[in-house]
Each structure stands twice: as structure tokens, then as C-alpha cells.
């Protein structure tokens, strides 16, 4: 039992992103309202970002900025840098741009929702389907 608990609790970051991915994909498929679908898409996206950020974490590391890197002579670092003492910066970079691009594409999605509303007068999926059939 203790082993099982440890296996479950020790992986709680994985549990979190899997649960968020499941919520996101369920909302994208099952929700009737287009705006809710877009919210589901945003949740799906941030779940993936959560996975990347938790990969970047290292035991006993600190934030990926050199402390007091300010006053040094440029280009000359007195002490060697230990890679294990800083969190992995590469996933941070990828996710930082992903968030900003994410809001831009979110804007496109919302614009399409508004356009659908302008043409059909509703953003409920079943009502739109009925209007298309007419």
C-alpha cells in the first residue's frame, strides 16, 4: 500500500497534466457552446505547457538566472558554472513563446466565434447545425 501511495503521489505532476489534458479534450469534443470549446482548447494548451515546465525542473536547482551576474566585467566569469544548479532554460524559452503565440491564436479562434455568431445568430453547435440544414 505504501509503495502504491508513493508511486501515485510521487508522480503528482504527471497526474495533474494528464487530468488537465483529459478535461481539455473532453470540453473540445462534448461542449455545445463554441466559447466553451475555445476555453477547453486553452486548457489543453496550458496542460502541455505544464508538462514541459515540469520536465525542466531539477532537484536542488534554482531559477535560471546567474545571481550577481550584474557587475562582472563583460565576458569574463571568474567561477565555473555548474549546470546542475540551474533549472533547464530550454523548455522555458519554448513555452514562453508558446504562451504569447497562444494568445494570438486564441484571438483568431475568438474572431471566428464572433463571425459565426454574426452569420448564424448563435454559437450553440446544435442550433448552427440546424440552420445549416435549412
Amino acid at each position: 500500500m505504501a509503495n502504491f501511495l508513493e508511486a501515485v503521489l510521487g508522480q503528482y505532476n504527471n497526474w495533474a497534466f494528464i487530468i488537465l489534458l483529459m478535461i481539455g479534450i473532453y470540453a473540445m469534443i462534448a461542449k455545445n457552446n463554441l466559447l466553451k470549446k475555445v476555453i477547453g482548447m486553452a486548457i489543453f494548451q496550458s496542460a502541455i505547457i505544464l508538462f514541459y515546465v515540469s520536465v525542466s525542473l531539477k532537484k536542488g536547482a534554482t531559477i535560471p538566472i546567474i545571481a550577481h551576474g550584474h557587475g562582472h566585467d563583460h565576458g569574463a566569469v571568474a567561477h565555473a558554472i555548474d549546470a546542475a544548479s540551474y533549472a533547464n532554460p530550454l523548455p522555458h524559452v519554448l513555452m514562453l513563446t508558446a504562451i504569447v503565440v497562444g494568445v494570438a491564436t486564441l484571438g483568431v479562434a475568438l474572431a471566428i466565434v464572433q463571425k459565426v455568431n454574426r452569420v448564424y445568430g448563435t454559437i450553440e453547435e446544435d442550433e448552427i447545425l440546424e440552420k445549416i440544414k435549412e
Binding site: 525542466s56 525542473l57 535560471p64 533549472a87 513555452m95 514562453l96 504562451i99
Partner: peptide, 13 residues
Amino acid sequence: MLAVDVAFTEAAV
């Protein structure tokens, strides 16, 4: 989770 830059972006965006 030590991703300060990502957190800053998320707070603003």
C-alpha cells in the same frame, strides 16, 4: 516550479 520567465508571461498574457 522555477520558471520565472514563463510565470511572468502567463501573468501578463
